[in-house]
Structure formats: structure tokens, C-alpha cells
């Protein structure tokens, strides 16, 4: 390298300098919560557009690979689908009527369903898998769309995770199956509180997440009961469905129970998610 008179830094020196630099970043992250600052903005404009593009390409590759269909098949499918659309439209109208009725009745009962009232915005999953050890993914909306750290992310009817870092046009979401994720949950039927934690081992073995610290003295909680986010959670809005209890047993201390729950969201095939546009206010 020094043939053109460039300064040649001994690699050991550079190594120590860089390691100390990284250690300082880690310390800064620990003390002030620094997580990228200006770097986020740079990466935002370089990577996000490309990831979006690749994501679409990847999706189409998967689609063509999965279903290389002939023209006849497509026509037949189209006919079937058109018929289905018609039936569904009828059903939808009926449902809307019923929904109106339900709203009217709930109003009468003065019941307020918080869950459906959340203001949400849709986002696409554009990147994931920067490590096999953690389950985080990137979505294509960021602070420019009003997304903030700690906003809850749902898909379909269940909890997906929480926004952990936000750039101008992207956000990083940590899913509830991530090994370091902990959610304060509640058994829907009995209102007993418990802790829902992601567990990589459980997830690879059986696609489940673990449930612990459940105090259920009267043995009322049954297999198949729904678990929702608890109202005492500091970051998760109350009443979002997490999953269903699939296994439960007494802990060694005989006071609490632990087990596993099956999440309602299919984390393997997550394409679109909804971000709830409010954070839980805690004192």
C-alpha cells in the first residue's frame, strides 16, 4: 500500500482504535440511548428505496416459483374469483349492517371497544434478518409518516411487536417472538396477569412463545384461552390479542404457572403490518 507514499497504519493500532471506538458507541448507547443519529438519515436515503425494490423483486420471484400457471388455469381461476368477489360483496354488506347494529348496541351498553378504536397506518415489511439471533424487521414508514418509538405494531388481529428505532422513511420493529422481547400479558377470561417472552429455542422447536409468572390459584385458566396485552403494561396498549394458551404447568415455587402460547400472527410470512399511531402514556 505504501508504494505510492501512502501512510500505512499498523493493523494492530487500527484494531485498537476501532475497538475502542465501538466500545465508546456501546457506552454512549447505554448512557444516552444513542442509536445511530445522523447515520440513520444516511442509510435511510441509500438503502430503503433499494430494499423496497428488492423486496418486490423477491416477492415476484417467490410468486412465479410457487405458481407458474397456464393461461387456462388463470382464466378458470379468474372466473372462480369473480364469483367469489360477488358472494363476498354480499356478505360484506351484511356484515356492515351487522357492524352498525353492533355499534349501536355497544353504545347502548356503553361498552367501548378500545381495540378497534386505535388509529392505525399500514406499512410494508421491506427488510429483515440482519441476524438469525434476533427477530427484528424494517418497515417502510418512519418519522415522516408520524411513527414514533414504542408504537405498537399489529397484523391482522394480533400483536406483532413494537417500534424500537425510527428513521425518516423507515422504522425497525422488534417482534414479540424476539428472544429479548417481554410483554406484560393478561388472560382474557380471568384477567390474570402474566409475562409473555419471546424464546428463540421455543420458536424454532414449536413456533411458540413462552408464558410465565401467571398466578392462577383456582386453576381457572384453560388450554386455548386467549391472551391479550395487559393494561398494566408500560409500552403496550391494552387489549391486543397475542395468542392462545397451548400448554400450562405449575412452577417449582407452586405459586405461579408457566407455559407456552401460540401467537396468532404468522411471523414467517409477514408482508404488511399496521402501526398503531399512539403510544401508551406512562407517568
Amino acid at each position: 500500500m505504501n508504494r505510492r507514499g501512502k501512510i500505512n497504519i499498523p493493523s494492530k493500532v487500527l484494531f485498537y482504535v476501532l475497538v475502542i471506538m465501538c466500545a465508546m458507541l456501546l457506552a454512549l448507547n447505554y448512557v444516552t440511548g444513542f442509536s445511530g443519529g445522523i447515520l440513520k438519515n444516511i442509510s435511510n436515503y441509500i438503502f430503503v428505496p433499494m430494499q423496497k425494490g428488492i423486496d418486490i423483486v423477491g416477492e415476484s420471484i417467490m410468486e412465479t416459483g410457487e405458481s407458474a400457471k397456464t393461461k387456462e388455469e388463470l382464466i378458470a381461476e379468474n372466473e372462480a374469483l369473480t364469483a367469489q368477489v360477488e358472494t363476498l360483496t354480499t356478505q360484506l354488506t351484511n356484515m356492515q349492517l351487522q357492524q352498525k347494529e353492533l355499534e349501536r348496541l355497544t353504545e347502548l351498553f356503553e361498552l367501548k371497544q378500545d381495540y378497534s378504536d386505535y388509529d392505525v397506518t399500514g406499512a410494508r415489511v421491506i427488510a429483515r434478518g440482519n441476524s438469525n439471533w434476533f427477530s427484528t424487521f424494517t418497515i417502510d414508514k418512519g418519522s415522516a409518516d408520524g411513527i414514533k418509538v414504542d408504537m405498537n405494531v399489529i397484523a391482522g388481529s394480533g400483536l406483532v411487536g413494537i417500534v424500537t428505532s425510527v428513521g425518516p422513511n423507515y422504522s425497525v420493529v422488534r417482534s414479540i417472538i424476539d428472544d429479548s422481547s417481554n410483554v406484560s400479558g393478561m388472560i382474557l377470561d380471568t384477567s390474570d396477569n402474566c409475562i409473555i417472552s419471546g424464546d428463540l429455542m421455543l420458536m424454532t422447536e414449536s413456533n411458540m412463545i413462552s408464558l410465565s409468572e401467571l398466578s392462577d390459584d383456582d386453576d381457572e385458566v384453560e388450554i386455548g384461552t386467549a391472551v391479550v396485552t395487559s393494561n398494566i403494561s408500560s409500552k403496550y396498549l391494552p387489549g391486543i390479542l397475542i395468542g392462545y394458551v397451548s400448554d400450562l404447568k405449575d412452577d417449582a415455587n407452586d405459586l405461579t404457572k408457566s407455559g407456552t402460547i401460540t401467537p396468532v400472527v404468522d411471523f414467517m410470512h409477514l408482508q404488511e403490518v399496521l402501526v398503531i399511531m399512539e403510544t401508551k402514556e406512562t407517568e
Binding site: V19, C22, G36, S131, G167, V172, S180
Partner: peptide
């Protein structure tokens, strides 16, 4: 030297898109 320099950049990129300790992947 090139290995470490590129390593630092790649690590920082991973850190930006991760939700853990910022600086870990870089190191």
C-alpha cells in the same frame, strides 16, 4: 486494515437496523 474498515461500516449498518446495543455488531 481494509477488512476492519469495511467491517466497521458493515457492523454499523447492522446496528442501525437492529434493536439491541448500538455498536455491538460493529465491534
Amino acid at each position: 486494515n481494509p477488512g476492519m474498515t469495511v467491517g466497521l461500516i458493515c457492523g454499523l449498518l447492522l446496528d442501525i437496523y437492529a434493536s439491541g446495543y448500538f455498536g455491538m455488531y460493529a465491534m
